[in-house]
């Protein structure tokens, strides 16, 4: 019986391969997944959603900073309303203890789908956020630190850790504060500025607030360059209502 012949590779004719690829070019592609933009949580305010490219990105930390009466809370309630309307649950970690249920209902929020955590201090608020991110299943977590921007809230380590946890949980983590706290950990930062308050009629009624939103930071180029701004009119239901 003759000894078995060693198997040698078939020589490839490079020129024939190149010709074949050229002929098949429209049909042949290098295998790769299409780069999809992250899903977004819309605010329901068309000007803001247009500025953000559809809303706040899921799986990222975003921050909304601004002065008093600049529309931060209205924006947050819009987010909550859109999320709960989609049948999802959301969490509000409220270190400022400022959540107003009547305003939320007026904005269209389904209250039974909101977990409201009234954290007694910033440290408890940040720990609560971490626990909620660990639980998974909350597509939106709002952290309200307005007026509570102490040393714990300014720690960059905390925000980078929470941003990583948000990426793992695919949660849109949105921070409300008087000024920007998360630094480079934030995927995008929106700065809100008050413009004017409109009183009309006799006797006078507070009818609307006009605010401006400025996209101060965006890490991905999907929603446009930083520095773009949008003006928003917020209708006031007011004490008279």
């Amino acid at each position: 019986m003759p000894p078995p012949r060693p198997i040698s590779p078939v020589p490839v004719d490079a020129s024939r391969l190149e010709r074949l690829l050229r002929d098949l070019r429209p049909q042949v592609r290098r295998g790769a997944l299409p780069a999809l933009p992250p899903p977004r949580c819309p605010t329901g305010i068309s000007a803001i959603d247009g500025l953000l490219g559809g809303g706040f990105p899921c799986g990222h930390l975003s921050e909304v900073a601004g002065a008093t009466s600049s529309g931060r809370t209205a924006l947050a309630l819009g987010l909550l309303a859109e999320t709960t309307r989609a049948g999802q649950v959301a969490a509000v970690v409220d270190a400022a203890d400022a959540f107003d249920a009547a305003s939320a209902v007026a904005a269209g929020v389904t209250l039974e789908r909101v977990l409201w955590v009234r954290a007694p201090h910033v440290r408890a608020a940040l720990r609560s956020v971490e626990r909620l991110l660990e639980a998974r299943g909350f597509p939106l977590i709002l952290v309200d630190l307005v007026g509570r921007e102490d040393r714990d809230a300014r720690s960059p380590t905390v925000w980078s850790r929470l941003a990583r946890a948000a990426a793992g949980a695919q949660t849109a983590l949105v921070l409300l504060a008087g000024r920007r706290l998360a630094g480079t950990s934030a995927e995008l930062a929106l700065e809100m500025q008050p413009r004017r308050a409109c009183f009309v009629g006799m006797p006078a009624l507070l009818e609307e607030l006009e605010v401006q939103a400025v996209l101060a930071r965006t890490r991905s180029g999907l929603c446009g360059a930083a520095g773009r701004a949008a003006s928003v009119r917020l209708h006031v239901l007011g004490s008279a209502a």
Binding site: G44, I45, G71, T73, A74, A76, L77, G78, A81, T84, R85, A86, G87, V89, A96, D97, A98, F99, D100, A101, A102, S103, A104, A106, A107, G108, V109, T110, E112, R113, L115, W116, R118, V146, E208, L209, V232, R233, L234, H235, V236, L237
Partner: peptide, 30 residues
């Protein structure tokens, strides 16, 4: 103000009244 124990809602989401315009919110001071 009040809070009730949180539980996952079992029913389908009710269609909440959607305001036609953006609403200015109140921040309570407690």
């Amino acid at each position: 103000f009040a809070q009730s124990p949180f539980a996952l809602p079992r029913s389908a989401p009710k269609t909440a009244l959607r305001p036609g315009v953006a609403i200015a919110a109140l921040r309570a001071l407690r």
